[in-house]
Structures are given as structure tokens and as C-alpha cells.
Simulated scan of single mutants.
Amino acid sequence: MHNVLAVLLCLLLAACGSSSNSPDAAQTQAAVAAFATVQQVFQHLRCQNCHIPGDAPLQFDAGLPHQMGVVRGPAGHGAPGLPCSSCHGEANPPESYGPNAPPGAPHWALPPPEKRMVTKDLSAPALCKMIQDKQENGGRDFAALLKHVSEDKLVLWGWNPGGNRAPVPVPHAEFVAKFKTWSDAGGPCPAS
């Protein structure tokens, strides 16, 4: 009898403990709804022009192949002899350079070939899983992902792309709040 009571007590404590750490149905539903905004941002051209399956980045609001035969290179910084920094500086150039002058932001580059974080043409569930995949996302957990999308200067460039480029349409603060809602619930993925 003592063993049965001990087992029941353990089960009761485990159930209570797990329910306090797990998101409830409403939190999960809110998180999945918030992911729709995360998806909208990750799949905007400002992101997916560089988060590509191949090795040639895209450019402009039409997602055209990058001019001059630009490629990812061995570390994501361009080919030897033609690094991204040949044209892209640490900040957007002055408006006097024209609307199609190469934009700039700190550490301008593509993701490295082994961690491409491809966003283009992924379904919502596939994108959700990819974002959480440490093999794809640079080894980031949710806290590091949140820091990346809220503080990284190259990510922030998407909201201030300069020239005649369309910025990410979701305000950055709203995007970060939705990302936090989604990640705080454990990153539940949409069903379809």
C-alpha cells in the first residue's frame, strides 16, 4: 500500500509540475497565430533574398538574381576576390548615390553554406521547424533567436533598406512581440 501511495503521489506531483511549465491551449493557439506574423517577416524579400537554397543571392523587390555573378562563397561573405564588402558597406549610402546603390549594414553577408536558413517557398510548418533547427539556425536556442531578430544590425536593416527598396511591412516592435509570444510557448508549429 505504501508503494502505491508513493507512486500516486509521484504521478500527481509530475502532473502538477508539467502543467505549470507547459503552455495551455489558449497560449498555444495565440503562439500559432503569432507565428503567422513571424512567417510574413521571414518570407519577405528583405529576408529571403539572402536566405536562399542556392549560392547566388537575389536582389531588389522582384527577387532577381544578383548582378555581377555574386555568389555565397565558402563562409557566406562572397567569393574569394569579390567579397560582399566590395560593394556593401557598414551602412546604407547617402541618397545622393541613387535609389539602386548597394545597401549596407554591419557584417553584410549571406548565411554560411552549412547554415543557409532557407525561407523561400517553405510552408508554414516547414519554416517553423527550420527556424528551430539548431543545425540550420547557427546553434541558437529561443533566447538567442529572439536576441538575433531584435538586435542584430543586419536583421534590423530590413526595416530601413534604403534606396527604393520596400521595408519589411510589419513594424519591428510588433514582429519582436509576436516572435516572443511564439517562442515563449515553445515554438508550436502550425498544422498546415
Rank of each mutant, 00 (worst) to 15 (best):
M1D: 08
V4Q: 13
A6F: 08
L8K: 02
L13D: 01
A15P: 00
C16P: 00
G17H: 00
G17E: 00
S20V: 12
S22C: 01
P23R: 08
T28Y: 02
A31D: 07
V38E: 00
V41M: 07
H44T: 13
R46T: 15
I52K: 00
G54S: 08
A56F: 02
A62G: 08
A62D: 14
G63E: 14
P65F: 03
H66I: 02
R72K: 03
G76D: 05
H77R: 14
G78S: 10
P80E: 13
G81E: 09
L82R: 10
C87V: 04
H88F: 11
A91L: 08
A91V: 12
N92D: 15
Y97L: 14
A101D: 12
P102E: 14
P102G: 10
G104W: 12
G104T: 13
H107R: 14
L110P: 08
L110G: 09
V118A: 01
D121E: 15
S123D: 01
C128P: 01
M130N: 13
Q135H: 07
G138T: 04
R140Q: 07
R140P: 03
F142P: 08
A144Y: 01
A144T: 05
K147T: 13
K147W: 03
V149Y: 12
S150P: 04
E151R: 06
K153H: 08
K153A: 15
L154I: 03
W157E: 07
N160C: 04
P167N: 12
E174T: 15
A177R: 12
K180S: 09
T181W: 00
T181M: 05
W182C: 01
W182V: 01
S183H: 05
P188D: 04
A191L: 10
